[in-house]
């Protein structure tokens, strides 16, 4: 930095170029390492972006994006006036918001309870079991749930044994959302607890020792030491999950839904996919764009808040 002050203004740009070249000579290998990822991003992530324009067109596959008729906001107007579309957005919001709330509360509680266990072998075995469902796809779990939750399934057999009314978990519209939310929670709570368990093991033990001398019991320690130490990571997880507000999980719903519960269970993504299959490209793309745009705002806001409040940075 000192040198730049002495250089006369006319020579400065030339000197900068030389510097740039020197820097590149030192770092070209790093550029080369990034090349595959950059190419993959350009081809598979950036190249489809102009295709978004079809949301403003009456898209016909044989005319292409440039040849199809331009209709402006018509598709979007159609979405919001179409029969059932508001219900679809509403379904998506209910399912995803409840998933976000329980998806934070349950893993935190589980992590706190698991943290109390001092027997390491026991702790590890519990962890092995509860992480497992996370790695199974919704096709596998859908197959299992269809069997286990059917009217003759093992859960309803247990209900009958307890003299309870059998429940059509997946075929009764009033039960479908509950089933979706609980089964998602069952699949993910263990795995989501990992970050909280990590944060718990990072708390300075001296805090607990000092509080013990002051006469604090385990409950007081949890309220005044453990929870405040978990708060930053909870804020990060919560704000980042807001980006999923319009993502109620296509894989899960698509594999569990059936015509009986379509009205209560249809979400944006299944709606897009059905319209796509019916050849309603523009309409489906418009719904997709609406979702991406809202997602973009929510994710950016989430990242910004997480950064503001807890200094969290993605990169």
């Amino acid at each position: 930095m000192k040198n730049t002050a002495i250089i006369s203004p006319s020579k400065a740009p030339a000197r900068l170029n030389v510097k740039k070249k020197q820097h590149f000579r030192k770092t070209w290998r790093l550029h080369l390492m990034l090349l595959p990822a950059v190419l993959a991003a350009l081809v598979f992530k950036y190249a489809p972006m102009p295709g978004i324009m079809m949301a403003f067109e009456n898209f016909k596959p044989w005319l292409g994006i440039t040849g199809s008729e331009w209709v402006g906001w018509d598709n979007f107007r159609l979405i919001f006036t179409m029969h059932g579309s508001v219900q679809v957005i509403w379904n998506t919001l209910i399912i995803s918001v409840l998933k976000i709330i329980f998806g934070l509360a349950v893993p935190v509680t589980f992590a706190l309870l698991l943290n109390e266990i001092r027997h390491m072998g026991l702790k590890r075995s519990i962890q092995t079991f509860v992480y497992l469902p996370h790695f199974m796809s919704w096709v596998i779990l859908g197959g299992i749930l269809l069997d286990v939750l059917s009217l003759e399934g093992i859960v309803n057999r247990l209900f009958t044994a307890l003299h309870l009314e059998p429940v059509m978990f997946l075929g009764d519209a009033s039960w479908f959302r509950t089933t979706v939310i609980v089964s998602d929670l069952w699949k993910e709570f263990g795995f989501s607890a990992i970050v909280f368990l990590a944060a718990l093991s990072g708390i300075n033990p001296e805090l607990y020792e000092a509080s013990e001398i002051d006469g604090a019991g385990r409950w007081k320690q949890t309220v005044y030491i453990t929870l405040p130490s978990l708060l930053p990571i909870m804020v990060v997880v919560f704000t980042l999950s807001l980006g999923n507000m319009l993502n109620a999980n296509f894989d899960q719903i698509y594999n569990l839904i059936n015509p009986l519960v379509l009205e209560k269970g249809d979400i944006i993504d299944t709606f897009v996919f059905r319209n796509f299959q019916d050849g309603q490209y523009s309409l489906a793309a418009a719904v997709g764009l609406f979702k991406s745009a809202v997602g973009f705002v929510l994710i950016s806001a989430g990242y910004y808040c997480a950064y503001k409040w807890t200094n969290y940075r993605v990169f």
Partner: peptide, 18 residues
Amino acid sequence: FFLIIMIFDAGLIPHYLL
């Protein structure tokens, strides 16, 4: 460059057409 594709997605149909 990578952050942008993380927060904005073109959606199912543009991907299919590509």
